[in-house]
């Protein structure tokens, strides 16, 4: 029997932001999914949601929030930075009895919250690498439009005034945050990679969004095993 997804919201600086959750009856574990950033989130969302359903079938609750300024959020992305996202996630941990934190790709840059709880990472990435791909895409598009621009030139603009990359309006603060952000060391973190601990494909680098049933199931298997192992240590 499949358990329904619940669409809810959480409070972020006086605004409501959307989140999706599964809450199987009598669940002892509740995983906070921290999504990848920007377009990578869209490319992984359906696979993450299917994993959440499968975790629910095994009695494990999970919550996947929209970060303010991303996905369904009505907030201006230019008002956000890595710390404001971390504070929002802290709030969710407190309000929803989160027991475990699982971060994906760029989500690993903001998962240094609730560090007393077990942490899981999938293909963590430096912020600079995320930015570089988006900057390249912008540069190629500008060149295709006949504009002569360089990466250095774009970086100078971004550092001082912020920049629009692949439809995402990044403030100078967020751009600079990301340029310097690396996943923080959190003791006991389970580091995982697709193709190693988790079966599947690198969905986030695909040029078109795709869904992987194999990855959804493998992710649910790996997460549920990790949950059970770490819960006995809590």
């Amino acid at each position: 029997m499949s358990i329904d997804l619940l669409f809810g919201s959480y409070d972020h600086q006086g605004h409501r932001e959307a989140m999706v959750a599964t809450t199987p009856k009598d669940s002892k574990e509740h995983i906070l999914f921290i999504p990848p950033l920007f377009a990578e989130m869209n490319k992984m969302r359906s696979t993450m949601i299917e994993s959440m359903r499968q975790l629910a079938d095994r009695g494990i609750a999970s919550t996947l929030p929209d970060l303010a300024g991303c996905n369904e959020s009505l907030q201006n992305l230019r008002q956000q930075n890595l710390n404001s996202w971390r504070m929002a996630l802290e709030h969710i941990v407190d309000q929803h009895n989160i027991t475990h934190v699982a971060a994906f790709r760029g989500g690993c840059l903001i998962d240094n919250i609730a560090i007393d709880k077990p942490h899981f990472r999938l293909n963590s990435v430096k912020g600079a690498n995320i930015i570089k791909t988006m900057m390249r895409s912008k540069l190629i598009a500008l060149k295709e439009s006949g504009l002569d621009e360089t990466l250095d030139g774009l970086s100078q603009i971004a550092v001082h005034d912020g920049i629009e990359l692949a439809g995402y309006e990044l403030s100078a603060a967020l751009y600079n945050d990301l340029q310097n952000a690396v996943p923080m060391t959190i003791e006991g973190t389970s580091e995982n990679k697709v193709g190693q601990q988790v079966d599947g494909i690198s969905l986030w680098i695909r040029s078109e969004p795709e869904y992987s049933a194999l990855m959804a199931q493998s992710l649910a298997d790996t997460l549920s095993l990790w949950c059970k192992e770490t819960s006995t240590q809590l």
Binding site: T133, S137, A141, S207
Partner: peptide, 23 residues
């Protein structure tokens, strides 16, 4: 293979092949 894919391809080549690509 559109411009977004080219951007991803370059970054992935840098990571997987341990090279640095000057844009």
């Amino acid at each position: 293979l559109d411009s977004m894919a080219v951007a991803g391809l370059l970054t992935e080549m840098e990571e997987s092949l341990d090279i640095i690509i000057d844009d």
